[in-house]
Design a protein around this nucleic acid. Structure first.
Lengths: 167, 167
DNA sequence: AGATTATGTCAGCGTTGTTGACTTAATTTT
DNA sequence: AAAATTAAGTCAACAACGCTGACATAATCT
């Protein structure tokens, strides 16, 4: 029973009846929005954006990454990366070192300053996640991780697995 | 034991040792990227973007929303909304109706075309979520929902709860 | 020697966000 | 009834961050 209207507009709300998993769709939207809002505030003061965050994050997670690897992970173009990477280098957060095997390559490393910023940006996100997990049974952690990984395209799993575990 | 280098760059990877919950931080990043990639492809053909998707989604979830309510949910400015909303109205996906109580207000409703597009955009996201949930115990659904809600700022819970449950 | 590869760069463009200022119409307050 | 406030729309300018296409350089591979 749909409530049609003279001029054809719809007054009934879209619900689970029409499309499955709507509640998780919108929770995911709100959760990710707030999850990124914390670092965004820190970045603003440095006139950096979310793009800088992502670059800085992955260079810290896997020091020595080449430009090509980074493009593959971030799925953006060389020109988009060039802009933010240049700024991160100019501000002393990242350094480039000529590849030892292949001297065409530029290996990317964080400076101490770059590491410090990466940690500062991660802190509120860690806190938010830890807080959310505290409300659950410790065993549920594996459930969350499994769910999130299953949400990623399998083609990307290799990239995730290639990041250092803990050392 | 940190591996310092002559010129001061850092070669050790950032891991759980330095910041808690790093694995979930990056899984969340990858998961959300792929989660939004599906609808993005559909939107491209219509020369719409993610902003159109969000507006269309919430107008479908709560028909009769006013412009002010939508701004509050999306947390963007009036000018940002105006552009995409105008396009959605011009293309016949959304209609505006003068508020019955307060005639200054414009209540927003989806057209049949707008509802159809919202469903089309939700389909791949529902599928992705359903697929991820299939790999878990049915009881774990509540865990995911609880975790995601806990990731949202409590100030926003009221907005989430105000959306129609199912009817 | 010639082709390919990794990176960098130039020029231009589109989407989506921002701020500030102003208008119009309707409602609320005094 | 006049004044203040509110909801919405609009104009102009701007910034961040994506994109494409084309081209340059150096190093490596065939």
């Amino acid at each position: 029973m749909k409530s049609y209207t003279p001029d054809g507009h719809i007054e009934t709300a879209l619900t689970e009846q029409h499309a499955k998993e709507l509640d998780i769709i919108e929770l995911f939207f709100f959760a990710y929005r707030d999850f990124t809002a914390d670092p965004d505030m820190i970045l603003e003061k440095l006139t950096f954006g979310r793009a800088h965050h992502r670059v800085l994050y992955f260079v810290n997670r896997k020091p020595g990454m080449t430009v090509a690897e980074l493009l593959e992970v971030l799925k953006i173009t060389k020109q988009s990366l060039a802009r933010v990477l240049k700024q991160l280098i100019d501000t002393g957060h990242i350094v480039q070192i000529q590849g030892p095997r292949d001297r065409r390559q530029r290996e990317l490393y964080p400076t101490h300053q770059g590491r410090a910023l990466a940690l500062e940006l991660a802190a509120p996100q860690s806190r938010r996640i830890a807080n959310a997990l505290e409300q659950l049974d410790p065993s549920d952690r594996a459930v969350i991780e499994h769910f999130l990984k299953a949400m990623v395209n399998p083609a990307q799993w290799q990239q995730i697995d290639s990041l250092p575990k803990s050392g």
